[in-house]
Amino acid sequence: MSETKKPRWPPGDLVIWIFIMAELLVFGVFFATYAFTRAHHVAQFDTYQLTLNRNAALINTLALITSSYFVVRAVAAIRADNSQACFRWLLAALAMGLLFLVVKGAEYHHHFSMGVNLGTNTFYMFYLSLTFFHFLHVVLGMIILLAVALKAHRGGYSAAEHTGVETGASYWHMVDLVWMILFPLVYVMR
């Protein structure tokens, strides 16, 4: 179809993309550090990886993917000028985010009640640091989505002007994207 002109810029405010790049960089370095540190402590990492709950990780991965999908639908809705549909999709996405937090919280509760903390060993240092850092990003992303949802509910966006929705959406997808790597890296690969 109209292959005339693709936009030069990604959806949303460009500043969020600068921020996203910075975040990806931090996570990327964190992942690489994990991988290379693991290479020096293979036995330890393989042993303690088994104490993690892969079912919880599955639920969380599904929650984030679904949430991201809902956000895509929210953006589509606002592009069709349907503020209320956009609002509802965002609420659904937030519910999925909440599910993530609850499941992850339960995992933390389990580990903490076993006396695990950042100082227990190198594997747990990484597991807790990486997932907690990501956990905080989910919280931040939810705050952003909530702000966007409320504004959408008030009719603050339209098909013509909805940069805010795209901005929040882009950030949320980044949180999802990072988890896509984190899940197999920390929970599965051995």
Binding site: R8, W9, D13, I16
Partner: peptide, 9 residues
């Protein structure tokens, strides 16, 4: 064309 807005920054 791209909005790189002060408010977002």
């Amino acid at each position: 064309a791209q909005a790189f807005t002060k408010a977002m920054a």
